[in-house]
Design a protein around this nucleic acid. Structure first.
Length: 295
DNA sequence: AAGGACACCAACCGCTGGATA
DNA sequence: TTATCCAGCGGTTGGTGTCCT
C-alpha cells in the first residue's frame, strides 16, 4: 500500500491576492503545458502557491473563456429560474451560463439577486412570497408529525427546531429521530409546494414576473438594463420556450405527484426520497446534467 | 475630511466522492 | 483492502472600494 506525497507544504505557501506576475506565470504555464495535474503547477510554474489555489485562480479568473463584465438580465433570469428549480447547485447553474463560474453565480446571487428578491417580499430560498410562507408554516403545525415529505435537505436552509425541541425531549432517541425527520420533510413540503404553486396550464408561457408574485421581476433585475429587459421580452429573446419546459411547473406537477406518492408510503425512507427527487430532477432537467458523464 | 456602514468579490475553508499508491 | 490524496463543490471570510453621515 503506497502513499503519495502531499501536494504542498501548507504552512509555507503564499496566500491572499494574486499578483499580475503570478497570473502571468499561470497563464504561461497553461499556454505551454495545458491543464493537467494542478499539484505540479506551482513547482513547474515557479509559484509559491498551493496547487489548489492555482486551480481556483485559473478556473475563477484566468480562464480565457470567462466573462468579466456584469451579469445581463438574461443571465439573471436563468439564475433565478434554475435556483428556483434546483436550489444552490451553483456549478450546475453556471454550466448554463457560458463564461460564468460557479463562484461568479454564487457571488451574484448572494450579493444581488437574493436581496432583490427579499425586497420584493419573496423568500429567496423558497421563491415564495413571505406572507404565503408564513401561512404555510402555520399549516405545518397542524400536520406535524403525521405527514411526511421528501426533499433535498442539502440545498435549503436548515429548519429551525427550536420550537419543536421541547416536545422532542420527551421522546426516546428513535422517536425523536423520527420526529425530526418528519419535521424536516414537512418543511420541504412547503418548499416544494412553493415551487409547484408556480405551475400553470401546459400551454401557457412562463412570464418573467415571479410565480404567485404581484411584482414584476424584470423591474428589479439589473436596474440599468430595464429597457433592455423590455426589449428582450418584446422580441422574445428570452428563452420563454425553454422556461416553458422548465418552469411550467418546472416539471413540478410531475414532481409533486411523485412526492405525494412517496409520502403516502410511510415506509419510504428519507434518503430514498431524496434520491428519488434527484432522479426526478435528472428527468426534468437532463440538460443540467449533460456533461457529468464527461468527468 | 474622517470614519463608519455597506457592497462586492476574490480567495479560502471544509466536505465529499473518486482515484491512487 | 486501505489510507491518503486530489478535484470539485458550496459555504464563508476578509480585503477593498464606495457611499453616507
Amino acid at each position: 500500500m503506497g502513499r503519495r506525497p502531499p501536494c504542498c507544504d501548507k504552512s509555507h505557501v503564499k496566500k491572499g491576492p494574486w499578483t499580475a506576475e503570478e497570473d502571468a506565470k499561470i497563464l504561461a504555464y497553461v499556454a505551454n503545458h495545458g491543464i493537467g495535474n494542478w499539484t505540479l503547477v506551482p513547482q513547474k510554474a515557479g509559484l509559491n502557491r498551493c496547487g489548489k489555489s492555482c486551480r481556483l485562480r485559473w478556473t475563477n479568473y484566468l480562464r480565457p473563456d470567462l466573462k468579466h463584465d456584469s451579469f445581463t438580465l438574461h443571465e439573471e433570469e436563468l439564475i433565478l429560474r434554475y435556483h428556483q428549480a434546483i436550489g444552490s447547485r451553483w456549478s450546475l447553474i453556471a454550466k448554463q451560463l457560458p463564461g460564468r463560474t460557479d463562484n461568479d453565480v454564487k457571488n451574484h446571487w448572494n450579493t444581488k439577486l437574493k436581496k432583490k428578491l427579499s425586497k420584493m417580499g419573496i423568500d429567496p430560498i423558497t421563491h415564495k412570497p413571505f406572507g404565503q410562507l408564513l401561512s404555510d408554516y402555520g399549516n405545518i403545525n397542524d400536520i406535524i408529525p403525521q405527514n411526511t415529505r421528501p426533499s433535498d435537505q442539502r440545498h435549503h436552509e436548515p429548519m429551525d427546531f427550536s420550537q419543536a425541541d421541547s416536545s422532542l425531549t420527551m421522546m426516546d432517541p428513535l422517536q425523536e429521530q423520527q420526529a425530526r425527520m418528519n419535521l424536516i420533510t414537512a418543511h420541504f413540503q412547503v418548499i416544494n409546494e412553493a415551487a409547484s404553486s408556480s405551475t400553470s396550464s401546459p400551454e401557457s408561457k412562463v412570464q418573467v414576473n415571479l410565480p404567485s408574485s404581484p411584482f414584476v421581476w424584470s423591474d428589479y433585475l439589473v436596474g440599468d438594463q430595464e429597457q433592455e429587459c423590455t426589449n428582450e421580452l418584446d422580441s422574445g429573446i428570452l428563452p420563454t420556450g425553454e422556461y416553458t419546459s422548465t418552469c411550467n411547473g418546472l416539471g413540478l406537477d410531475h414532481k409533486k405527484k411523485s412526492l405525494d406518492d412517496a409520502t403516502s408510503t410511510t415506509s419510504a425512507s428519507f434518503v430514498e426520497s431524496i434520491l428519488n427527487q434527484d432522479r426526478e430532477m435528472q428527468f426534468d432537467y437532463p440538460q443540467l446534467l449533460d456533461g457529468y458523464s464527461e468527468y
